[in-house]
Amino acid sequence: MGLLQPESGLLFWMCLAFGVVLFLLCKFGFPIILRSIEERKEYIDSSLEEAGKARQETMHLKEQGRQVMEEAQAQRWKILEDTRAEQEKVAGEMRQKAQQEAAAIIENARAEAQAQKEAILRQANEHIVTLAVAVAQKMLRQQLQDTKAQAELAGRILKEMDDKQN
C-alpha cells in the first residue's frame, strides 16, 4: 500500500519539475524543431517537384532538339536530292543542247556539202556538156560531111544514151 500512496512533497516537486520542463520545451524546444522539420520537408518536396519539372523541361528540350536535328537532316537530304536532280536536269539539257547543236552543225555541214557537191556536179556537168559539145562540134565538123552519116551518128548516140540510161 505504501508504494501506491503518492508522497505530497514528491507530487509538488514533480508538478514543478514537469511543469517547468513542459513550459520550456513547448515554448522554446519542440515547436522550433517541428517547424524546421516541416519546413525542410516542404522545401525538399518543392525541390523534388522543381527537379521533376526541370527534368521534364530538359526532356522536352532534348526532344525538340532531336526534332530540329531530324528536320535539318531531312532538309539536307532534300536539298541534296534537289541539287542532284537539278544537276541531272541541267546536264541532260546541256547534253541535249549539245546534241542538237551537233546535229544542226552536222546537218548544216551535210547540206553545204550537198550543195557544193551539187554545184561541183553542175559545174562538172556544164564543163562536160561544154566539152562534149565542143568535142562533138569538132568531131562533127570533121566526120559529118554528109547528112546520112549525120543521121546515123545521131541515131547511134541516142541508142547509146538509151542503153546507158537503162
Binding site: L10, L24, L25
Partner: peptide, 22 residues
C-alpha cells in the same frame, strides 16, 4: 529527497537535450 534530486537532474538533462537541439 533522493527522488526529487534525481528528478531535477533528469529534468535538467531533458531540457538541455531538447533545447540543445533546438
Amino acid at each position: 529527497t533522493k527522488t526529487v534530486a534525481g528528478l531535477l537532474v533528469n529534468s535538467a538533462i531533458v531540457v538541455l537535450m531538447i533545447l540543445g537541439a533546438a
